[in-house]
């Protein structure tokens, strides 16, 4: 069985949210609901030295969506078995089966499932299953103006980008869920640890 995954080079990401908007447009999501979001992470401060201001400031962006985990925490907690993994490892919610109980939402460490109040269901990134099954690319990947995103079999992505990791601040520790998102870490931060700067946008 294949396992699809995402790869993002965080040194090339400019935080433009083209991926988020392409996803939003395909899903037809109202404001406040996003299957893909872009976190702005950063920190540091300033020093007045003589007449000058000297920054010790850094920032980077982390586009994030469902990681289509190999061992997804959302799947076993679904009481109606609405969540499944397909032959490409895509974690999919069958919205016809979903009763909107929120369990998957609570189980996910990264906030990927989104609750739809009006419909009383949960839905999330489905890896653009219809498009990739037809031979295309996920909407987010093909939207990236910096060509910073890739998708494919996660082992191939890992082989192509051996330095890629999931250990990126501020993404939660994956425990044993095996998320299938890979990131090339932004080098600007160095040893400094940032915080999310755009809470109101996500």
């Amino acid at each position: 069985m294949a396992q699809y995954g995402f790869y993002v080079d965080l040194n090339a990401c400019i935080g433009c949210k083209a991926c988020q908007m392409a996803c939003k447009d395909r899903a037809g999501n109202e404001p406040g609901m996003n299957w893909r979001r872009v976190l702005e992470v950063g920190g540091g401060d300033w020093q007045k030295v003589g007449q000058a201001w000297v920054p010790d400031v850094f920032a980077y962006f982390v586009p994030t969506a469902c990681h289509h985990c190999s061992n997804p925490p959302c799947l076993p907690v679904c009481p109606t078995a609405a969540i499944s993994k397909d032959s490409n490892g895509i974690v999919k919610i069958d919205v016809e089966q979903c009763i909107g109980c929120h369990y998957c939402e609570w189980a996910c460490l990264w906030g990927a499932p989104v609750f739809y109040e009006e419909q009383g269901i949960v839905n999330k990134c489905d890896f653009c299953k219809d498009i990739v099954d037809a031979g295309g690319s996920p909407a987010c990947v093909e939207a990236c103006p910096m060509r910073a995103m890739e998708w494919g079999d996660v082992e191939e992505l890992r082989a192509r980008h051996p330095e890629a990791t999931f250990q990126i601040v501020p993404l939660a520790d994956p425990q044993d869920f095996q998320p299938n998102a890979l990131y090339k870490a932004n080098t600007a931060a160095g040893e400094r640890v940032g915080t999310i700067l755009n809470q109101e946008e996500i």
């Binding site: 083209a18 908007m21 392409a22 909407a139 093909e142 103006p145």
Partner: peptide, 26 residues
């Protein structure tokens, strides 16, 4: 019902796809 951009024509560095930003995508 949906807007996409310059999608699956070859993305040649000498003739790169004209990929839209959030403004066009919305």
């Amino acid at each position: 019902i949906r807007i996409t951009s310059d999608t699956d024509r070859p993305d040649d560095p000498l003739d790169p796809q004209l990929r839209a930003c959030v403004r066009g995508r919305s």
